[in-house]
Computed example of a mutant assay.
Amino acid sequence: MTMMTRAMSLATVVAVTVPAAGLPAHAGAVATRAAVACPQVFGHGGYPTGANPWDRDKIRQPNNPRALNDQKSWGADGVEGDVQLTRQGTKAVMWHNTSTNGLTGTKQNITDLWWAAGTGNLQSRTITRGPYTGERVYTLREWLDQVRSRGLVALLEIKPETKPILSNATYATAAWKEISDPIKERQGAQRILVYSTDTWIQAELAKRHPTLLKGGAARWTDSVGWEEPPPSWTGNTAHWQSVLAAAPASVMTNYTKEYRAWLKGRCA
């Protein structure tokens, strides 16, 4: 190697590793990380861990318009919503708890309630605590339209509580239509992904909506267990970095606003 070649090589190394005057010492490292493509960010909502989490739940899930507005303002590209079924599978609705915990009226399981009929029906109830107090429960069709109007990707979790209805020979056909028809009607006009933590429901989704399965999308990126009041986002940063280093196409987080701000300078 000639002296000139060695000098050019050294100059290249210096240009890459030495930050410009006035920049913090870590700036070069951040610039290098920026070569990673930015993932799409899916907003979750946060649900307490530990014993009796429903007692501390502040109903932060993006299952209503005000929550969708917040997620959009915080920089979300998509949101994860929760699909439940009312009595006999007659209505697909957006709610995360097994029961009406966090809603007005007598506590009952969602699967025991009619949507609009009878005293204490689900449609007439509203949220009683947390940032979205006063909001009501929305149908799957309503929610998908709201998500689309905000330019967000819809990620649907079909909750395990729906399995006894979806697997019941008497109600299964109508119940699956309540879930599948709104998706089929809209999938050509908006991006919709589906999944379930229940293995039987997940297998059925693979048969009914094979091209919409979540798969490796929306990889979970937080490491701090959610609690109320929310723990500091800073406990997540080491795990956020390790997940980002794997260049995921999309991630899911309870800390949408903080995660979006943290991403700046770390991806492109």
Rank of each mutant, 00 (worst) to 15 (best):
L68Q: 00
N69D: 14
N69K: 08
D70V: 08
D70R: 04
K72H: 09
G75D: 05
G75W: 03
A76K: 02
D77Y: 13
D77N: 11
G78M: 04
E80W: 03
G81T: 14
V83I: 13
Q84E: 15
R87C: 11
R87Y: 12
R87W: 06
G89L: 06
T90G: 15
A92R: 11
A92Y: 04
V93L: 15
V93C: 13
V93K: 07
V93G: 08
V93F: 11
V93S: 15
M94P: 01
M94G: 00
M94S: 00
W95L: 08
W95D: 06
H96R: 01
N97D: 09
N97W: 03
N97L: 09
T98I: 02
S99H: 04
S99V: 12
T100H: 08
T100C: 06
T100N: 11
N101C: 05
G102M: 01
G102F: 00
G102T: 00
T104Q: 07
T104V: 11
T106G: 04
K107Q: 15
Q108I: 05
I110R: 02
D112C: 13
L113C: 11
L113M: 14
L113V: 12
L113R: 07
W115Q: 10
A116C: 12
A117R: 13
A117D: 07
T119D: 12
G120L: 05
G120M: 02
L122C: 07
Q123L: 08
